[in-house]
Design a protein around this nucleic acid. Structure first.
Length: 106
DNA sequence: ATCTTGACTTCGG
DNA sequence: TCCGAAGCCAAGA
């Protein structure tokens, strides 16, 4: 599957992440059909226009950490506005993971 | 064609 | 828990 289709597929996956839940880059890549393309997910999201309706803020790094980049704090704010709980600077995946439960048992 | 650079992940110390 | 190294895929120089 060429990168162009992969991009569309990634965006499709991100769009289905429900409000109040989060998914990791690796997970999005997995659901898009590219198990090891986590970095590409980040690349695709970085190309999104400012006014996009894609819920890019619901995509976080492994373990619920917010990816380092300019604007990271804004992402946290958006998530908090959706009711996502944080614990020690990390998203509480035990309560807000979209599907899998990568973190240790609560 | 080779090297560097990322909104990444996992493993080992 | 924090840090560094290695593996990862694509794009740009």
């Amino acid at each position: 599957m060429p990168p162009e289709d992969l991009r569309a597929e990634i965006l499709r996956v991100v769009r289905r992440i429900p409000r109040g839940r989060v998914a990791t880059y690796g997970e999005v890549a997995l659901h898009a059909g590219w198990p090891r393309a986590a970095r590409l997910v980040g690349r695709v999201l970085s190309d999104l226009p400012e006014g996009t309706r894609i819920p890019w803020h619901r995509v976080v790094s492994a373990g619920g950490r917010i990816a380092s980049r300019p604007g990271a704090s804004g992402q946290r704010g958006r998530l908090a506005a959706e009711g996502v709980a944080f614990r020690g600077g990390r998203v509480d995946l035990g309560r807000h993971a979209w599907r899998a439960l990568p973190g240790p048992p609560a």
